[in-house]
Design a protein around this nucleic acid. Structure first.
Length: 765
DNA sequence: GCATAGATCTTTTTT
DNA sequence: AGATCTATGC
């Protein structure tokens, strides 16, 4: 590292001048624990990145800094921003998510952790497959032991660092004792399979650090400074991981906001942030309360809702910005017109206020709500980007191919084996599978080796399956061998043909089959890209990445497309215009949460997170009825009523003869609200102005979006494909690298292609 | 062992 | 309403 990689003092001073007082204190804070309570939009990322730059400028070696986030996207952004400040030094700073940090740790320390080097990482589906089989094996009634609940309890136990034994000790009724038993055997099965689930990544890392002094010393020495983002979302296991890594100096800087804690259902414990000072009595606490993102009206509304919570540290953000528009609340009769209204509002904003679709985001509580908006966008040929939904690596055909790959490096991976042993059909049915699986476990050899042992197989499952199992074993061995002679992408293609995956979907709709085959092509392309972008590409590295990557990670603001995503996915993002939709009792807040006060408070925080994404304008929508297991009607969300009326501009599109359903006992003064008909049209035409430094930032963002547009495709574009000819883009789905678009080709057929890999030429936008 | 039709459950959010 | 699971018959 050269001196020029580092900030010089004068540069660093210049940066500091842009910060407000508490921000500067946080950046300059010396040694010891530091808690930054950073409200929404208070420049939190800036503070973290400046702090890292500051540490680097003051002689901390980049490799000694660990910064942990929850999503790969956040990690990537942090790294990019540190790089802007410090140059190449940033590349040596270890910035990663909790899970990918743990995965990397365990690849180094697999021996101490008691894992095979090429351990598999099980996703939710893999884990559920194992647990499901266990529930059946243990004769537990599926009705009283629903898979999701059992998995959830086990996951909770892991989040709290409870071993199966400890969990069993705490179980004081038969029900919990049985779940404890499932947990115990589940762990045995994982161990046998050489696999860890998502929770285990963290738990095993913590256990290894706690049990092995040499390993602990090595890693504690390695990191002298640890920073954690979104600290309010950590669970006990994660807090312990961080604590160990930061010791003994405990130069630990955590940043978070208790009002933005929205992952309690996943084991996040808000007490971690509320009681940080108890764990670290010498901690410095800094509050960032100036908001640089939103108009005061938006902050007021968000604050009004979240401050209805009892269990909360009282605080209030402020902003120097001028008031801006009122918050628009749109009341519609049903979900269909809700979507129509949202789109027409967006159209209006784009026409009159020099905004583009990319400035707008539609947020909703549940993924299922996205459908109506997607349909509306298609109807109006409005480009949109859907974040979430079916993920590329979760598709059946992709998981199948990955399972074959996984089995070549981890021969005991039972989830992979189960997935592919009879796909394509080999005449090895369920009954034989169970017998073979059990016998193999007792035998402890890898699947391929065991299955090639004709005698052993015959003894367990009869003569009939011995031949197909032997062939299967040979197939796996051949694949393993082939891997040595070719690169990952070629090997992937080789695998698809050798295995003859296509024959597994004989009789299926030919279009579906074609799409699946295209997806497999895309998998090969993804592997090629992985090989190009990594210095030491490995199969297990690729599989690890495939297991830990999510949709939001790949999301990038681009083109003129409107963004559609859940409120949860929106955390950490900001948009000039935000629509929060489906503000109905039972949907948002969700009915399940309405029984438990803590859960209801989390819904309020979720509203707070959603609202504070907005820079300029916030819209809230309510649909009186919507399709949810058949049509259902609901009352306005209490969140709307928790906002003082002076901040709201209500656009009531429900005919006055149509009263709200169940108006009894619910204070919803719809009659007091002005109807849209009498509203002067000029109001919507008022321009959204940008002020101060925000304007500059917005401008730059816009430019970046524009430059990216060149390489992206919008609905309505006319494109050319060498194989399929000319066609028109009907819709664009997915995010970032996994963006797909549906194209209606002139030949009268349409295809869904992955933008990144399809050799498309854009003829006209 | 496998395909099909009917039954059942799902929709909270995700690393 | 749609996907996924289960029971049944071949």
């Amino acid at each position: 590292m050269t001196q020029s990689d580092l900030l010089t003092d004068s540069q660093s001073e210049q940066f500091l001048a842009d910060l407000n007082d508490p921000q500067r204190l946080a950046v300059l804070h010396g040694d010891g624990p530091l808690l930054i309570l950073a409200g929404a939009g208070s420049g939190k990322t800036r503070v973290i990145t400046f702090r890292i730059a500051h540490l680097l400028a003051h002689g901390v070696h980049p490799r000694q800094i660990l910064a942990v986030t929850f999503t790969n996207k956040a990690a990537g952004e942090m790294k990019a921003r540190v790089r802007e400040l410090t140059g190449a030094a940033a590349d040596s700073v270890w910035v990663s998510t909790f899970h990918s940090f743990a995965a990397r740790f365990l690849r180094f320390e697999y021996q101490a952790a008691g894992l095979p080097q090429d351990f598999s990482i099980y996703d939710d589906g893999d884990s559920k497959g194992i647990i499901k089989r266990l529930i059946a094996e243990m004769n537990l009634p599926a009705r009283t032991f629903p898979l999701g609940t059992v998995k959830g309890k086990i996951s909770d136990a892991k989040d709290r660092m409870l071993s199966p034994a400890a969990f069993a000790n705490l179980a004081h009724d038969d029900y919990m004792r049985r779940i404890a038993e499932v947990y115990r055997v589940y762990q045995e099965r994982l161990k046998d399979a050489g696999a860890v689930d998502f929770d285990d990544l963290i738990v095993t890392t913590v256990r290894t650090l706690e049990d092995d002094e040499a390993v602990r010393a090595r890693w504690q020495q390695r990191f002298t400074h640890v920073l954690v983002d979104e600290y309010q979302d950590t669970n006990l296991a994660q807090v312990r991981l961080i604590k160990h890594l930061a010791e003994p100096e405990s130069n630990l800087c955590v940043v978070g906001d208790d009002d933005q804690s929205i992952y309690a259902w996943r084991g996040a414990d808000i007490r971690n942030i509320l009681e940080f000072e108890k764990s670290y009595p010498n901690a410095t606490v800094i509050r960032l309360e100036q908001n640089y993102r939103s108009r005061p009206n938006i902050l007021e509304a968000a604050h009004a809702v979240v401050s209805a919570n009892i269990n909360r540290h009282p605080k209030k953000l402020w902003t120097a910005k001028p008031p801006g528009e009122q918050i628009t609340c749109i009341l519609t009769t049903d979900d269909w017109s809700e979507a129509e209204m949202v789109l027409s509002r967006i159209r209006l904003l784009c026409e009159r206020e020099s905004l583009t679709g990319a400035d707008c985001v539609i947020l909703y509580r549940t993924n299922a709500q996205s459908r109506v908006f997607e349909e509306a966008c298609r109807r109006h040929a409005t480009p949109y980007v859907l974040v979430g939904g079916t993920k590329f690596y979760q598709r059946g055909e992709i998981k199948d191919a990955l399972a074959y790959m996984q089995l070549t490096i981890n021969g005991r991976d039972v989830a992979a084996w189960r997935r592919i042993i009879n796909k394509p059909l080999r005449g090895i049915g369920d009954a034989s599978q169970k017998k073979l699986e059990e016998a193999r476990r007792a035998d402890s050899r890898p699947f391929a080796e065991f299955l090639a042992d004709t005698e052993a197989v015959t003894a367990v499952a009869g003569k009939r399956v011995a031949l197909p199992t032997k062939r299967f074993a040979k197939l796996i061995d051949d694949l393993k061998e082939a891997r040595e002679t070719m690169n990952l992408a070629d090997w992937c293609r080789h695998l698809v043909t050798t295995v003859n995956l296509k024959s597994a979907w004989e009789g299926d709709d030919p279009n579906t089959v074609a799409t699946r085959m295209e997806n497999l092509d895309e998998l090969a392309a993804a592997m090629a890209e992985y090989e190009m972008t990594h210095e030491t590409p490995s199969l297990s590295g690729f599989l690890e990445q495939a297991a830990l990557v999510t949709d939001i990670d790949m999301y990038d603001v681009q083109t003129d497309a409107i963004t559609l995503m859940t409120l949860h996915a929106a955390k950490g993002l900001e948009f000039p215009v935000v629509f929060i939709c489906g503000l109905e009792e039972g949907l948002f807040p969700l009915s399940r949460s309405m029984e438990k006060p803590e859960a209801l408070e989390e819904e309020r925080r979720l509203f707070y997170v959603g609202a504070t994404r907005a820079k300029e304008r916030l819209f809230l929508t309510y649909a009186r009825t919507r399709q949810r297991f058949g049509p259902m009607a609901s009352m306005k969300s209490r969140f709307i009523d928790e906002i003082p009326p002076e901040f709201l501009d209500v656009d009531n599109l429900i005919p006055s003869a149509d009263l709200e359903p169940g108006g009894l006992g619910y204070d919803a003064p719809a009659r007091n609200w002005r109807s849209s008909e009498v509203r002067p049209a000029s109001r919507s035409a008022r321009s959204v102005s940008r002020t101060g430094s925000e304007a500059g930032a917005g401008q730059r963002e816009r430019e970046m979006q524009r430059s990216m547009m060149a390489q992206t495709i919008q609905a309505g574009a006319v494109v050319f494909h060498p194989k399929f000819g000319e066609g028109e883009v009907v819709s664009v789905r997915g995010a970032g690298d996994s963006t797909t678009c549906e194209i209606a080709f002139r030949g009268g057929f349409s295809k869904t292609l992955m933008v990144r890999f399809a050799p498309l030429k854009i003829l006209r936008q």
